[in-house]
């Protein structure tokens, strides 16, 4: 299957101000985090995926469709939860979710049933007839998730879905997002500036900064693809570890943390050298592999 969203050299300007210079990525199935600091163009990119903004350069395809020229076709297949949670305060959650489902083409009877089902799914079954103005921020975020999935979209765009939530509510929301994707096979793009929540729920990520794609791919790829080194745990005492480290320092950058060595350089080459040295010194190797970096390290390291 082709990518859900494919961007090649996408550009966007507002007058003389360039928001996106050249953005390239492929978004595959699962949950994808759209990462970037505030003001880096994440919401603009979501708007372009929805077909609300025209690209000023490059090509963008969503579910194989050009969203600008066939916006209504694309939007019928998407669910969207906006960032702000200022929903109409005097409207009941069930009425609101049903209305959004109808907007996406569900007949009224189906929309009514599915609105109820979606609200039960997000944990608001008992609260569904309450006006949204009487709900907590966490409940309103859940209503937004419910309206985004009620019409059974192929792809859901969630813009900062944990904004304004306390840590416990945030954990619950992230669990909910993960279960919606894993249990019902709904693909999700989660826009966020909080890296830890992307690491927690996403299968892959697109990192945007300075109007460009800084990195994209699965989280495993992102953790190893850039500046990756080799990490080795030795079965040795401190002196032996220091001896190996000093020998390696003539060719590589090496840092030591108790029995762990972190060695810069290509893993294959480093690996054979380390094994050779350990064999000569009769030291055992407990663990060996590429360095694992947090997504934050990738993001900060790349953008620096």
């Amino acid at each position: 299957m082709s990518s859900l969203v494919s961007a090649r050299g996408v550009q966007k300007r507002y007058g003389s101000f360039s928001v996106l210079n050249s953005v390239d990525f492929e978004i595959e199935r699962g949950i994808t985090g759209l990462l970037g600091a505030n003001g880096t163009g994440k919401t603009t990119l979501l708007g372009m995926i929805l077909g609300l903004h025209r690209t000023d350069g490059g090509t963008l395809e969503v579910l194989g469709i050009d969203p600008w020229h066939a916006g209504h076709e694309v939007r019928a297949l998407l669910g969207y939860a906006p960032e702000h949670h200022v929903l109409p305060p005097d409207v009941k959650a069930a009425d609101f979710v049903r209305h959004v489902a109808e907007l996406h083409g569900l007949p009224r009877a189906d929309a009514t049933v599915r609105a109820s089902d979606a609200l039960w799914l997000v944990g608001l079954g008992e609260e569904r007839f309450r006006p949204m103005g009487t709900m907590s921020t966490g409940q309103r975020q859940r209503v937004k998730l419910a309206q985004a999935i009620a019409h059974d979209p192929q792809l859901v765009l969630l813009d900062e879905p944990t904004d304004g939530l306390d840590p416990l509510q945030r954990d619950n929301m992230l669990d909910l997002i993960k279960s919606v994707s894993s249990e019902y096979g709904i693909d999700i793009i989660l826009s966020s500036h909080l890296l830890d929540e992307v690491e927690r729920v996403c299968d892959s990520a697109v990192i945007i900064g300075d109007g460009q794609t800084i990195a994209s791919g699965t989280l495993d790829q992102l953790r190893t693809q850039v500046g990756g080194g080799t990490r080795v745990e030795l079965d040795a005492n401190d002196d032996q570890v220091e001896l190996i480290a000093n020998t390696l320092r003539s060719d590589y950058t090496v840092s030591v943390e108790r029995r762990w060595l972190t060695i810069g350089g290509a893993p294959d080459e480093v690996g054979s050298r380390v094994l050779e040295l350990c064999d000569q010194a009769r030291i055992g190797v407990i663990r060996y592999g590429p360095t694992r970096r947090s997504l934050e390290e990738v993001y900060l390291g790349e953008s620096a």
């Binding site: 109808e102 996406h104 083409g105 569900l106 089902d117 999935i149 059974d152």
Partner: peptide, 24 residues
């Protein structure tokens, strides 16, 4: 058998969206 599930039924398209907007 109740609960959230995939929707396989017919959709009303743009005209349905417009009608829903006006009624709401």
């Amino acid at each position: 058998d109740r609960g959230y599930r995939r929707f396989e039924g017919p959709r009303t398209g743009k005209s349905g969206a417009f009608k829903s907007l006006v009624i709401y």
